[in-house]
C-alpha cells in the first residue's frame, strides 16, 4: 500500500506552518495531549552544496513562492515531517515539524489506549517537497498516566550511499539537554519523562 496524499493535505500543512511561524509562543499541552521530544541526526553529511542546485525546484505546475522569512537567494533549512498512528489505526497522521536541526517537540492527542505508533520521519533537503527521503522508526510508545511530555531519544541514521539508503540506526540519550530545552519552551513546570520505544510488528502494514 503506497501512501497517496492529496495536495490539499500539503496545503493544509503549509497553512499550519504559516500559522505556527506567525505565532511564536507555544501553548502548553492539554491533559489529553502529549509532547513527544526527540532529535534526529543524519550521517554522513549530505552533499548539500550539490543538492542546493535543486533547492528551488518546483514542478512546472506549482508556483515557486519563497518560504516565509527568506530573502531572494537564501535557501531554506532542511525540514522534517513525522508520521504517527493511533495504535491499531489504519490511517496515519503526518505532521510537519519545520527545521530538522535541533530538538523536536511534537504535540499530539493521546489515544484512548495511550499508545502511539511512530511509523517514520521524512527528511526534506532544503524544505523542498521533492527532495525527500524517509527515516524509519517503526516503534510504539505508551504514554504514562499523567505525562504530558515524553522523551524518546536521539535517532542517528547512517546513510549507505548516494541513494539515501539507510545502513544503520542508533538511539542515544540526551535527556538532560532535552529537559532543559523543554523547560525553556513550556515553562519550568514541564516535566519530561523518558519512555521506552517498543518494536512494532514488522509485518504490520504501515
Amino acid at each position: 500500500m503506497s501512501m497517496k496524499k492529496p495536495l490539499s493535505a500539503l496545503l493544509a500543512g503549509l497553512l499550519v506552518l504559516a500559522a505556527a511561524s506567525a505565532e511564536p509562543k507555544v501553548s502548553k499541552p492539554r491533559s489529553s495531549e502529549v509532547v513527544i521530544v526527540f532529535r534526529v541526526e543524519v550521517k554522513p553529511d549530505v552533499d548539500r552544496d550539490f543538492y542546493s542546485n535543486y533547492a528551488s525546484f518546483t514542478s512546472p505546475w506549482v508556483s515557486a513562492a519563497l518560504p516565509r522569512g527568506l530573502r531572494k537567494g537564501e535557501l531554506p533549512a532542511d525540514s522534517l515531517s513525522f508520521v504517527w498512528f493511533e495504535d491499531g489505526a489504519s490511517m496515519g497522521t503526518r505532521a510537519y515539524l519545520g527545521p530538522a536541526a535541533g530538538l523536536q517537540m511534537v504535540k499530539v492527542g493521546i489515544p484512548k489506549n495511550r499508545t502511539i505508533d511512530i511509523a517514520s520521519l521524512r527528511y526534506f533537503l532544503y524544505d523542498n517537497s521533492y527532495l525527500y527521503f524517509d527515516l524509519p522508526v517503526l516503534r510504539k510508545i505508551v504514554v504514562p498516566e499523567g505525562a504530558n511530555y515524553v522523551y524518546i531519544g536521539t535517532f542517528t541514521y547512517t546513510l549507505a550511499d548516494e541513494y539515501f539508503r539507510i545502513s544503520d540506526i542508533t538511539l542515544s540519550d540526551e535527556y538532560d539537554g532535552a529537559q532543559a530545552q523543554v523547560a525553556k519552551v513550556y515553562g519550568e513546570s514541564a516535566r519530561l519523562l523518558r519512555v521506552n520505544l517498543i518494536k512494532l510488528d514488522p509485518d504490520q502494514d504501515k
Binding site: S2, K4, K5, P6, L7, L10, S120, R122, D134, P136
Partner: peptide, 15 residues
C-alpha cells in the same frame, strides 16, 4: 520505503 505524493493539478499547461 517508497512513498508517493499524488496530487491533482489543473490548468491550461496541463491540458
Amino acid at each position: 520505503m517508497k512513498r508517493t505524493t499524488r496530487f491533482l493539478a489543473l490548468g491550461a499547461a496541463i491540458l
